[in-house]
Design a protein around this nucleic acid. Structure first.
Lengths: 149, 149
DNA sequence: CTTGGTGCAAACATTTTGCAGCACA
DNA sequence: TGTGCTGCAAAATGTTTGCACCAAG
């Protein structure tokens, strides 16, 4: 979650990150890609490809789903968003700006997914890797719960 | 594959669990279902629908993938196996007999997934749920790592 | 015997890819 | 001005479903 109430300003640094990545790969920064990035940054939690497409189109620009999927992959490569597979077979994504915790509390009755922060997990993850002699690259923690029973 | 030190006997209690579940729902215990169950119990880690189909067919019985998918759903409902979505879009499953820890160490370079046990997570999960006023139903912890860099 | 089960193939949903023209660097 | 980008539609996956026949209870 970005700090201040001036939400639009998150866009700038990430835009820079994305453009740098594109340039490094000899790729282009097109209006479609810019709009997908801007759109994606407005989502609070998890979102899927269709949500991106719909939201981008709301802003006047017409993008094809092909372009959305292609851009989503670029955004993943650039480290801007992360893919999260829940139990549906549809891919969901979340922005991983800065060092956002990718831990989730998933409410089984509503399907709602709340982003949570569990700092201890980093240490646990590192300990697990040390024990197995491998290098930690990341982790994912999902808690499943219900409101009622 | 089960070590011969008495492992094959896991089948019996689980078979009982499954049959009970089926009977409770007015469903039938067919050879196909029995063989899918038996096959699934021989996998050590994660497996997908295709692996089940192939393995069942090796044992002489010819099952369609439709039946495999239908049985897999039943096994999930019965609490015998659990679906695990990793980053591929194919569903993977694992047996959750007894109280197997569903925590995983995933090696990014090989794609290998090692089952690990992190007992502290249960407490962390419960604390998270308590803080959000919801009832814990389960959790999932995935550590991503590499062997090299 | 009755009800549910099976295989097959077609249907589905999501994501990927080939192609012809368009636009950014 | 050239390479990469776009939209479209077709292909590729992985999973589900409709149907006619078969078998468990």
């Amino acid at each position: 979650m970005p700090p201040d109430a001036g939400e639009p300003s998150i866009i700038e640094p990430l835009c820079a990150v994305f453009r740098r990545k594109l340039r490094a790969e000899g790729l282009k920064y097109t209006p479609e890609r810019a709009q997908v990035l801007a759109t994606v940054l407005e989502f609070e939690g998890l979102f899927d490809a269709e949500a991106i497409t719909a939201s981008v189109r709301t802003s006047g620009l017409r993008v094809s789903k092909a372009t959305v999927y292609r851009t989503v992959r670029l955004l993943q490569d650039a480290g801007v968003i992360q893919r999260v597979m829940l139990d549906r077979e549809q891919a969901l994504y979340q922005v991983v700006y800065g060092r956002a915790p990718s831990d989730l509390l998933i409410l089984l009755d509503t399907g709602e997914a709340i982003q949570i922060s569990v700092p201890e997990l980093a240490a646990i993850r590192d300990a697990v890797c040390a024990r197995h002699g491998v290098l930690p690259q990341g982790h994912r923690f999902q808690v499943f719960a219900t409101r009622n029973a």
